[in-house]
Design a protein around this nucleic acid. Sequence first.
DNA 1: GCCGTTTTCGGCCCGACTGTTTTCAGTCG
Length: 556
Amino acid sequence: MTSNAEAAEIFRSIADLLDLLGEKFKPEAYRRASRSIESLTEDLGAVAARGELRSIPGVGEAIAEKIEEYLRTGAVGYYDRLKREIPPGVVELMRLPGLGPKTARRFWVELGVEGPTELKDAIAAGRLVGVKGFGAKKIDQIRSALDTTAPGAGGGRRPLEEVYPIARELVRALRAPNRADRVEVAGSFRRARESVGDLDILVTTQDPARAFDTFTAHPLVGEVKMRGDTKETVLLKGGLQVDLRVVRPDEFGAALQYFTGSKDHNVRLRSLARERGLKVNEYGVYRGEEKVAGATEEDVYASLGLAWIPPELREDRGEIEAAARGTVPTLVTEPDLRGDLHVHLAPEAGPDAVDRLVAGAQKRGLAYLAVVVAEVAPDGSLSRLPERTLERLRKYASGAVTVLPAVEVGLGPLPSGLEVGPADVRIVRPTAASPTLPDPVPPSLRTDLIAHVGTTVASDAGALARWVDTAQRSGAAVEVGPGVERLDSTAARKAREAGIPLHLPTGLGGAPDDPTGAVAVGFARRAGASATDVVNARERARVRAPASGSSRGPKR
DNA sequence: GCCGTTTTCGGCCCGACTGTTTTCAGTCG
C-alpha cells in the first residue's frame, strides 16, 4: 500500500542523506518535492495515472521516475542504496540542535562515530579535545544536546490548537503598556498550519533590551537559549521554542512577510523580484540601494506588482500567480460566521448553561445555534438533554439568537424502534457499520452536517474520498477544525473543491478560551474557503442545502 | 535535482548568531 505521506517521507529522508554526503542543492530539491507531495489534495497514483507527476511543483524528470518506481514497487532503489551507505545514527546526530550535516559527517568520517551513543562515549573519553573546530564550549553544547534530546524531550511540532493559547498569552504580555508597540506572531502559526514547530514573534519597540527582559521574565519561559541585539530565543517550560525579534517600524512589513513564510512562497517571491530588478529581504524591497517598500506587507507585495496575499495561502500553490492576476479570493473571517450548527452541551449541563451559551453567542454576533438535544451513541443507545434544559432551550426558539434543536445519529438506519424526535438540524457521523451513505440516499437520511469523522481522514486518502462522496450525495456540510474528528485544511480543500459546504465550529459550549473557533477559521482559510463556502456563514434561512437531484432528501 | 517572457546551462535567499576563527564556517530560520 502506497501513500502520499510515505512518499513524502522517503524524499525527505533522501534529502537528509544527501546532506550528509555534502551535496549542495539536491537536498533542497528533494525537500521541495517532499513538501509538495505532502500538501497534495490528490493521491499520487491518480496524478501518475494522468501522466501529470511533473506538474507537481519541484518534481522533475528524476523525481517523477522515483515516484513511479515507488508506486509500482513500494520502494525507491536510490533511497535504499543511500541508506546502506550511511549509518542511521549519523542522521540522528545531524538532527541534534546545534549540529548539522557538516558536523555529523565529520564525526562519522574522522572519528568513526556512527550515532548519539557513540558520540557520548567519544566525548566522555575525551576524543573531541584538540579536534580542530571543537573548543570547550562547543563540546559542552553538544553534550547537553545529547542529554536533553535523548527520549523525544521537548522539540517536535505541536498541534496549532495547543499552541494557540500560549501565543495569545505571550502577545498579551508583550503588548502591555510600555513594553512593545507592535506585536505579531509570524511563522507557521500565522499561516495556521496544523502543526507549529516554534513561535516567531515580531515586535517594534524603542527599547529592545526591555522587551527581552519582559519576555524572559514571563512565567511560561523556561530558559534563554540565545540573546543578541535584535533576537532572543527561549525555550518555554513546556519545551516550545519561541523567537522574539525586534524590528524597526519602517521594516515591520518586510519582516512580517519574511518571517511568515512559507519558505517556498518567499523563494518564489524573491525570484519574481529578481526578474523585476528588485531585491527582497527581511528589511525591505530594494531597487539597487533605494528602498521601495518595507513598512507594511501591502507595500511589499504591491512593489512586486502583487495584491496582498493572506498568510494562510502563502505556500507557493498558485497564490502568487493569483495575486499577479488580482484574483486572490476573499477568505472567510470569524466575523463572517452567523451561527453554529453543532453545539454539544454536557449531559449534566443545566438551564444556566443554556443562558451562558446564548449570551456567548450574542457577544460573538451569532444569530442561530443548533444544540444537540438527542444523540444516538455508537452502541445504539439514545441520550437526551434533561427536560429542564430542553425547556430553557425552547425559550430561545426566537430572539436575537435563535436556538434550534439538533439530533445527532450514526450514518445508516436508526436502530429499530428508536425515535429521536423532531429536529431542525440533523447531524450524522460515520460508524464502523456504516462508513458511508447508501446510494441513492433515502429521504429518511436527509443530513445537514457530517461530523465526528473520528479517524485521521487526512492520512487515509480512501476514507476521505468516501466521506467527500457521502457528503456530496447527501447534500451535507462537513466539519473543519482541530482534532481528529474534524477535517484538516488539506482535507477541507479537497471537500471545498468538490463543492461541499464547510461547517466551522465556534467553540461555544467549551471553555471560555477555547481556540477551536479561531483554529477552524484558520484551517478553512488555508483551504481557500470564502464565506460563501461556509454553511454557517449563511443567514439562518439559507442554511439548509437546497434540494436538487434525485439523491437528495426533501427539504422536510 | 529543478527550473526558465532575459537562460536547456547556470543559477539556486540571505542575514543573525555562535564559536572558534585571526577573517570564517556552520547552523538556523
